[in-house]
Amino acid sequence: MKITLLGTGTSQGIPVICCNCEVCRSEDPRDNRLRVSVLIETGDKTIVIDSGPDFRYQMLRAGVKDLDAIVYTHEHKDHVAGLDDIRPFNYLLKKNIDIYATERVQDALKREFSYIFAEKVYPGIPQIDVHTIDTDNFYIGETELIPLPIMHYKLPILGFRINDFTYITDAKTIPQETVDKIRGTKILIVNALQREDHISHFTVAEAIAFAQDIGAEMTYLTHISHNMGKHEDVERSLPANIRLGYDGLVLNL
């Protein structure tokens, strides 16, 4: 299984124009963070978790030629806004794209992209097949996905475990039942917004404590705010088996 971090950033704490800080001026490409998303290539399927506003560019940048499914963690715009950009895959691959989401997320997609779900089909709109998920395990092709209920402040959202890989973003609290499902994972990706306390996201310290409790062989931090600082500086402060994720990082499992 090949895992590519398409984006490791967040809409929070990112200036809409260059603020001329050290991150803006950094020549290290690891400091250029698009909104969070991950590409998972299994033996028979190409899966993306979340399609944020940067989805189109992320697909182009990563050279993605195929897409079978998008799985959604939750309905916030920085995770769903790029859904319309699956149209080139519909056109080139001549197939529908499978969408996996809870009923609540589906309701949000219907509000945001009403034309996709309209009774009268407009030519050229995204072609999707929607699959309802909850907390039960499900399969995409031959690959089993284990939904991981977590809390994003007061919003229930999902992380996912696939074999020995676990992906969690936007977590603030994680129930013990979910922790038990994660134990034994070899590669953990988990959100760490900033050093300061935040109402709905792990801080760096909280993410480190969680990662150390899970005991994965390697942990990579994602959903990183602009005000976190430069990649190389943050890296020096992390434990040996916990690293800062960056856009384009490829992991094989």
Rank of each mutant, 00 (worst) to 15 (best):
residue 106 Q to W: 03
residue 243 R to F: 03
residue 32 N to G: 04
residue 32 N to K: 15
residue 144 E to W: 08
residue 12 Q to R: 08
residue 107 D to P: 00
residue 172 K to R: 13
residue 42 T to G: 06
residue 130 V to A: 06
residue 58 Q to S: 10
residue 68 D to N: 15
residue 177 E to W: 10
residue 136 D to R: 13
residue 193 L to T: 12
residue 210 F to M: 03
residue 201 H to Y: 15
residue 233 D to R: 12
residue 185 T to W: 05
residue 198 H to G: 02
residue 117 F to Y: 13
residue 225 S to M: 00
residue 247 D to A: 02
residue 79 H to G: 02
residue 90 N to W: 06
residue 42 T to C: 02
residue 12 Q to E: 14
residue 118 A to K: 05
residue 229 G to Y: 10
residue 121 V to D: 08
residue 128 I to A: 06
residue 198 H to D: 14
residue 75 E to T: 03
residue 49 I to T: 03
residue 234 V to Q: 02
residue 114 S to C: 06
residue 140 I to V: 14
residue 187 I to N: 05
residue 250 V to I: 08
residue 217 E to C: 01
residue 33 R to T: 00
residue 42 T to R: 08
residue 1 M to H: 11
residue 177 E to L: 11
residue 122 Y to W: 09
residue 209 A to G: 09
residue 225 S to D: 00
residue 141 G to H: 10
residue 139 Y to V: 04
residue 154 K to Y: 13
residue 189 I to Q: 02
residue 165 F to K: 03
residue 1 M to S: 07
residue 46 T to S: 08
residue 121 V to Y: 04
residue 102 T to F: 13
residue 180 D to E: 15
residue 78 D to I: 14
residue 217 E to Y: 04
residue 179 V to A: 11
residue 63 G to F: 10
residue 196 E to G: 04
residue 197 D to M: 06
residue 88 P to N: 10
residue 185 T to C: 09
residue 211 A to D: 03
residue 87 R to I: 13
residue 176 Q to D: 10
residue 50 D to K: 01
residue 45 K to Y: 10
residue 122 Y to P: 01
residue 33 R to N: 00
residue 126 P to W: 02
residue 117 F to Q: 07
residue 86 I to L: 12
residue 234 V to P: 01
residue 32 N to D: 10
residue 205 A to M: 06
residue 33 R to S: 00
residue 79 H to Q: 07
residue 148 L to K: 04
residue 230 K to G: 03
residue 213 D to I: 07
residue 102 T to I: 11
residue 51 S to H: 13
residue 109 L to E: 12
residue 102 T to E: 14
residue 72 Y to R: 10
residue 104 R to Q: 15
residue 140 I to F: 12
residue 29 P to Y: 14
residue 209 A to P: 02
residue 69 A to Q: 12
residue 169 T to Y: 05
residue 146 I to H: 12
residue 76 H to P: 00
residue 88 P to Y: 12
residue 96 N to A: 15
residue 126 P to K: 04
residue 110 K to C: 05
residue 157 I to D: 13
residue 153 Y to M: 08
residue 120 K to R: 14
residue 29 P to K: 04
residue 140 I to W: 10
residue 148 L to F: 09
residue 41 E to V: 11
residue 134 D to C: 12
residue 28 D to F: 13
residue 17 I to F: 06
residue 121 V to M: 08
